[in-house]
């Protein structure tokens, strides 16, 4: 994973709560066995007026003019501003894959669904939780005739608005390090291989019923 670099980007305001992962990337696109190429289908049912199917060339599809990401003000937005419980529903990691593939790098919301929040950090995306009143204020600013530009400083855990306003945010230490260093989680965990083996040996003694072989005559 690429390390997360501080940047300044445009904020696209998606003003609805409980945006679910079915809306972020509809089920027909989940048939892909690849990790990439989901960006053109991000928010497919909201973004286009026709029905999308995997493999479709999206460059000539009719766009929904009322959808925020089709608004010229928010072209090349890198920050998505959302309402409460963003990313609820299905655990599909295709949702953060699509968001990252589209070019978004930060999502700001008053709250996120747990699995989605977790999946973001595995894919170089930074989900930022801010108080509802601050989010309301950002919606007001981002909805103006001029797009709102925000500097995202992950190492300093602060957002800097174009008028100089600074908004501090929280991020769990482990997740912050993972993003800043672009760590491979599995490699890090395998450094604990001995502890995992020791745990397994103890469990085999203490809870042997967990390690019974699969039933005879079945399986591979």
């Amino acid at each position: 994973m690429e390390p997360f670099q501080n940047f300044t980007g445009i904020v696209a305001p998606l003003d609805r709560s409980n945006v679910d992962t079915d809306a972020i990337i509809p089920k027909q696109f989940l048939k892909s066995i690849a990790r990439t190429g989901f960006g053109p289908y991000l928010f497919d049912e909201l973004r286009y007026l026709d029905h999308g199917e995997p493999g479709m060339d999206c460059t000539h599809r009719p766009l929904n003019p009322t959808f925020v990401l089709n608004d010229p003000r928010y072209a090349n937005a890198q920050i998505l501003l959302a309402r409460e419980n963003f990313g609820c529903g299905s655990s599909r990691e295709h949702a953060p894959w699509a968001i990252a593939d589209f070019g978004l790098r930060v999502i700001i919301a008053p709250s996120f669904a747990d699995i989605f929040h977790n999946n973001c950090f595995k894919n170089g995306l930074l989900p930022i939780v801010l108080a509802p009143t601050i989010v309301d204020d950002l919606f007001a600013r981002a909805g103006g005739p001029q797009a709102l530009r925000v500097e995202v400083d992950l190492s300093g855990q602060v957002l800097v608005l174009d008028d100089g306003t600074r908004i501090a945010f929280e991020v769990e230490a482990g997740n912050k390090e993972r993003l800043l260093k672009g760590l491979d989680d599995i490699g890090v965990t395998l450094e604990q291989a001995e502890a995992i083996r020791a745990y397994e040996e103890r469990r085999r003694r203490e809870a042997p019923w967990l390690f019974v072989a699969p039933p005879p005559g079945l399986g591979v």
């Binding site: 990790r35 655990s91 599909r92 990691e93 953060p96 699995i115 977790n118 999946n119 595995k122 894919n123 482990g174 989680d185 599995i186 965990t189 395998l190 604990q192 291989a193 995992i196 397994e200």
Partner: peptide
């Protein structure tokens, strides 16, 4: 609990999750 695909891989490779 449900997990994303990166974590599916993590469990396959390490039998653990953070």
């Amino acid at each position: 609990f449900g997990i994303g695909t990166s974590e599916v891989e993590h469990v396959l490779a390490t039998q653990c999750l953070i």
